[in-house]
Amino acid sequence: MSFLGGARPSGSGNGLNTDKIDMAITELDTITDFFNRMVSSCHAKCIAPRYTDGELNKGEMVCIDRCVSKYNEVQKKVGEKIQSRGNPGAGGAAPGPMGF
C-alpha cells in the first residue's frame, strides 16, 4: 500500500505516538481487507462449487497462482490510475456522500 507513506508527527505524553500507531493499524486493516477480497475473488474464479473432496486439484492450484498475480497487477494499475486522477490519499477527493 505504497501511498500510505508519510508519518504524521504529534504524540500523547505516555510514550505512545498515537498517530503512528493509528497509521499502522490503518495499514494493517487495509492489507487484511485487500487480502480477504483477493481470497474471495480467486475462490470464485478458481474453485468449482462442487465439493466431493477437500484437495485442490492441479488446475485449481495453477489458477490460484495466476489469480493472485493478476489481482496484484490490477491493484497496482488501479492505484496508478487513482493517483493520476489527483486523489492524494489522505484527505483526498474520493467521491463521498458529502463535501465536508
Binding site: M1, T30, F34, S41, G79, A90, G92, A94, P95, G96
Partner: peptide, 18 residues
C-alpha cells in the same frame, strides 16, 4: 475520509478484477 478512500480503492480493485 482516509478509511473511506482506502475502501473505495479496494472496492474498485475487487469490482474491476471480477
Amino acid at each position: 475520509q482516509m478509511q473511506d478512500f482506502l475502501r473505495l480503492y479496494a472496492n474498485i480493485v475487487e469490482k474491476c478484477f471480477n
